[in-house]
Each structure stands twice: as structure tokens, then as C-alpha cells.
Amino acid sequence: MDHRIRGVRRVMTVLAAVALIAPLQPVAAAPIPAQGAAVVAAPAVVSSTAVKLWVKPTTRLNIRTGPGTKYASIAKIDKGQPAYATAKSSNDWYKITTKGKTGWVSGSYVRTCSKGCEIDAGPYTTNRAGLTDRYYSRLAGTDLYASVNGAKRIGDIPANSIVYRDLAWERKAGQVSGWFYVRTQGADGWMKSSALKRTSSAKTSNTTKVTAAAVRRQSNGNIPASMLAAAGWDKEKTLLAAPAVADLTKLNTAFKNKFGKNLDIDLAYRTLDTQKFFYSELGPYIAAKPGTSNHGWGLAIDFPESYNYSFSGKYYKWLKANSSKYNWVHRKNLEQYRSDGSKNPYAEAWHFEYVGR
């Protein structure tokens, strides 16, 4: 027999043996959907892209661990509270960070902004906040805005008020030509650059010989510019009632003899709008009812809320012991503890008031 035929027969014999051992199984046909039945698609893959913008909720929202309602809620963000977004998912959710929490909020319930935005620059600490780019308001009634296209935050800032440009936050808020992001009056927001100047023209003494009693007869928060002045040694030229300047200067001289530096004034005169802003932001435990604060007559100053000016700090302790010699006092109702030994919820180490004439 031809060897090629014998080879073919051997192959066929092997295949037959394999078939007996493991018979082939029929392949089931793919099921055909019944007429009218819905076809279920595979879940979409959610991707995200980097963004740099601010979101502002139109209602109180859950902050979730992922971009969708199936993810757990880890916190909430209030209506109108700005938050910085760093990513946007393909299903329209934004990754934000606010008040120490990072998570996702639905894009269906936020407004977005990339330039001249209202932002959250963190809790208020001091007017300066470590800033050095100093300006002064050019005219009385200078306005501070929440955003470039938004509502006024404070609308009656006096001429020659200290203003610090905060360039880092300005960049994060989205720079707009002709506008600066600033800190002033204990608040932050947007101000037109044309409303600012580099130097103060405030007087540095009580040239009109006005008395503290005359200042107190004025409408709180609406003190005429002629009754305001700045201490000559104060590099920021912080405005306060003119009759208080001379005694504050004497107090500063004694302070400097002791510590080798000038007093640090954070805030002094507050207009009515500024008082309203503080009351809204801080509440009655910290801010006086608008129209009643001694700041509204320029007869109170706040030192920075730093350790040395705290109840445990060396500056506070010295001021508490010596300021009354110069007609500046720390009120008993602002002390750390009440007469019964309980903690005072209204305590303020940094606040001193003028009691001179």
C-alpha cells in the first residue's frame, strides 16, 4: 500500500478515537430578544477632566465620595457657598474642596465661574493676612464686591482706608483687567483698581480739635472724614476718631519702649455697611449689632488675633496693665472668664476702647 495512503488512514484512526473520548458539544445560538423588549446597555464608564473654576450651589447639596448619587454622602455644602473645583466628570459632576472636605457635587445644581469669581478665601484672620501689596481707597464710598459681576459686599468704605491686594487669591479667582482681589475692613472681595491709590492722604493729628464727645454725637458708622485721622507712626494709616490719636500715640511710645516695636493695629473705624457685613458673617457672639459698635465712632481698635495679643500673650498682658494710663481700656465684659469663673463666650483679648474726652 502506498505510504501516503497508510498515513491518511492513521490520521483518521486517531481522529475517530478522539471523537469517542470527547464528543463535540453543539454551540447554543445567541438568544433573540423578544419583540418590544428593552435592550440593556452596559454601564457607561465615567471619566473626568481637570478644571480650574468655582462652583456655587443653587441649593443645599450633598458632597459625595464619587461622581454620582450611588456614592456615599460625606458632607453638605450650603446654597451660595463658593467652592473650588479641580475636576469635572463626563456625567456632569464636579470635584470640589470646601471646609476640609473633598468630594463631588452634581453639576445640575451649581453655577460655575472662571473669572472674577466670588470665592471662599478661608476664615478671616487679619486685615493683612501676611500681605504687603498695600493700597488706599481713593474716594469716600468706595465699593467692595463679592465678584466682578456680583453684588456689593460693602458699599461705604471711607477714603484713605487701607486695602491689601491678594494676588494669589486673585489668580485663583480668575483675574480680570481693571479689578483687584483685596482684603480691607476685615473682608475680602473685588475692587476696581481705579478706586485705589498707593499713598494715604489722611491727616495724622486732631487738626480740627474735635472732642470724643462730639464724635459720639454723630451717627454710628457715618463719621465725617474731618473727624477721622491716622496715627503718624502707623505704616498702614488705619483710620480712627481724631481725638483718640494723641493718646494712642502715647500708648504706642510706651509699648515700643517695652518691646522695641510699634503696636499692630488690625481694625479701627467701621462704617455701617462694614458692621452689617461683620454681623452677617460672624454673628452676635463676636460682632456688635450694626449701629451700636464703638468701632462705628472710631473709638475702638482691634489688635491682630495672634498669640502675643491673646489672653496668654505678653502684649495683651502689658496692654491690660498699662493702657488705661492713656485712656484706652479693655472692657471687663470682654475678659476671658466671668466673675463666677465660667468661660465668657463674648471674650475678646484684642479689642480695646477709647474712654478719653
Rank of each mutant, 00 (worst) to 15 (best):
Gly155Lys: 13
Ala22Thr: 14
Lys172Gln: 03
Pro43Ile: 07
Thr13Gln: 10
Ala347Gly: 02
Ala202Glu: 12
Ile301His: 07
Ser324Asn: 10
Ile162Arg: 09
Ala83Asn: 04
Trp328Gln: 00
Tyr109Asn: 11
Leu272Phe: 09
Val110Pro: 02
Ser194His: 02
Met191Thr: 02
Gly341Glu: 11
Ala288Trp: 07
Leu272Val: 03
Gly189Ala: 09
Ser193Asn: 11
Ala121Thr: 09
Ala229Gln: 03
Lys56Pro: 12
Phe259Glu: 13
Gly80Asn: 14
Gln81His: 09
Lys172Met: 01
Lys289Asp: 11
Ser177Asn: 12
Ser137His: 12
Tyr124Ser: 03
Val329Phe: 11
Asp78His: 10
Ser323Gly: 06
Ala213Val: 13
Thr13His: 08
Ala159Trp: 12
Ala230Thr: 03
Thr142Tyr: 02
Phe255Ser: 03
Gly313Ala: 11
Trp190Ser: 09
Arg183Ser: 07
Lys192Cys: 11
Ala213Trp: 08
Lys235Arg: 06
Leu15Arg: 14
Gly232Cys: 00
Ala241His: 00
Pro23Trp: 00
Gln275Glu: 15
Ala173Thr: 01
Ala214Thr: 10
Arg357Val: 10
Ala87Phe: 08
Lys88Ile: 02
Lys317Glu: 05
Asn127Lys: 07
Glu236Asp: 10
Val182Pro: 09
Thr86Asn: 00
Leu272Glu: 02
Arg331Tyr: 05
Thr58Arg: 11
Arg138His: 12
Pro304Glu: 02
Val51Pro: 06
Arg183Glu: 10
Lys250Asn: 05
